[in-house]
Design a protein around this nucleic acid. Structure first.
Lengths: 208, 208
DNA sequence: AATCCATGTGTACAAGTGTTCACTAATGTG
DNA sequence: CACATTAGTGAACACTTGTACACATGGATT
């Protein structure tokens, strides 16, 4: 019989989170996942679940935390790789798309969670997006590309940018991961969205 | 015992769809609803479900069709009520928000379906949004406010507008329906988003 | 008036669900 | 080394689930 096999601490915990993400990656919605289902996918007995999470919402919240890490990695890479200001938008979008592909399940979870069942998860994801937007605003301020904007207007612009990119995410996750043509279309369209927004920001007069 | 009580044709069908929406309105996610749960909410025996729908996805698809009607009503009202071009954005946003409040469950369903479990529902909602965007493009063309834009750029602008509004929807549905302050904030922010986009469109040069 | 069919009802069943409990082995701490 | 804690296991529970079946009934069609 299968004996207890204790391995690295937190390994089962990680297996459970990965299992949930895997199921989401297979097309399931997080809200419809059950404890037994997740433990089965993880190759663990159902009772083990309670050693690490109180319920599925709890697991979702911890996934949001990990999502935060993914987003921070993405920001860091963008900051490191986007050198020429004139290619800023194109390159940022490209980096975003490649990260979204590499962490497909994570971003699926994020897109689902925005209108998900758990209010806490919803709020967590929203909060991550706000953080992302505020970091973007800082970067833009630092680059001094939009000096004429008030802080408030800059925040609004960043917010709109982040939302637009997030929405493109749902486009991206809707097409199969190897449909290069469609992905290229999404990349182009997202780029143009952002360009349009920045043209607007360049000519924006506050309190208009 | 409760005898069969045949009423208007399609009444049970409607009761089932309303029941699903009601549950969504109560905070449940559509993907996590079950047949028994919906029939229970509708006050109908589980087997009745199969007289009208093959499964929950099927019910979802029919909800998307009804959602289309709601959107069309909203468009019609916007066209009838937005008279002065200079208040176009403000008034459209106001109409949108009031419709979103009046049909809260419908729009919750829409927000959920965008990243939902059923690919067909997802595609249906996306298709409704495309239609909405193309209608918006037509209206803008008719009003001759953005004459310098190519058809393609006009489509892109409309698309971005619809997406931004749709995202605001998730903000709106996240706050309680009688939190006037928050709703007013969302209204203002959405209005500014659209103004920013239109400033961008006004200064947009194609093939930039 | 006879018939058909769409739509309703009740019963049944096998499978899956969340959660509790008592038990056990590995690990970190004294 | 002894011991408390953590993290794994399997069996059991009371329910809920989707779906199939046989049957009833009202309205429409013939």
């Amino acid at each position: 019989m299968a004996e207890k096999q204790r391995r690295k601490p937190g390994e089962t915990r990680e297996k459970l989170m990965t299992a949930a993400l895997t199921l989401v990656g297979k097309g399931r919605h997080f809200a419809s996942l059950g404890i037994r289902e997740v433990t089965r996918q993880a190759g663990v007995v159902p009772t083990s679940f309670y050693r690490h999470f109180r319920n599925m919402d709890d697991l979702g919240l911890q996934l949001v935390d990990e999502l935060g890490l993914v987003l921070r990695r993405m920001m860091r890479e963008a900051r490191a790789n986007v050198l020429q200001a004139d290619k800023l938008i194109e390159e940022s979008v490209a980096i975003f798309i490649s990260h979204a592909q590499a962490n497909r399940s994570f971003f699926l979870f994020m897109a689902q969670g925005l209108a998900g069942e758990s209010r806490a998860v919803q709020e967590g994801i929203r909060s991550e997006m706000r953080f992302f937007a505020s970091e973007l605003a800082n970067d833009l301020r630092r680059l001094r590309l939009v000096d004429h904007l008030t802080d408030q207007d800059l925040d609004m612009t960043s917010d709109l940018v982040v939302r637009s990119v997030a929405f493109s995410l749902t486009d991206l996750l809707g097409v199969s991961a190897d449909d290069d043509y469609q992905i290229e279309q999404i990349r182009k369209r997202t780029t143009r969205f952002l360009q349009l927004i920045f043209v607007g920001a360049a000519h924006w007069k506050s309190a208009g």
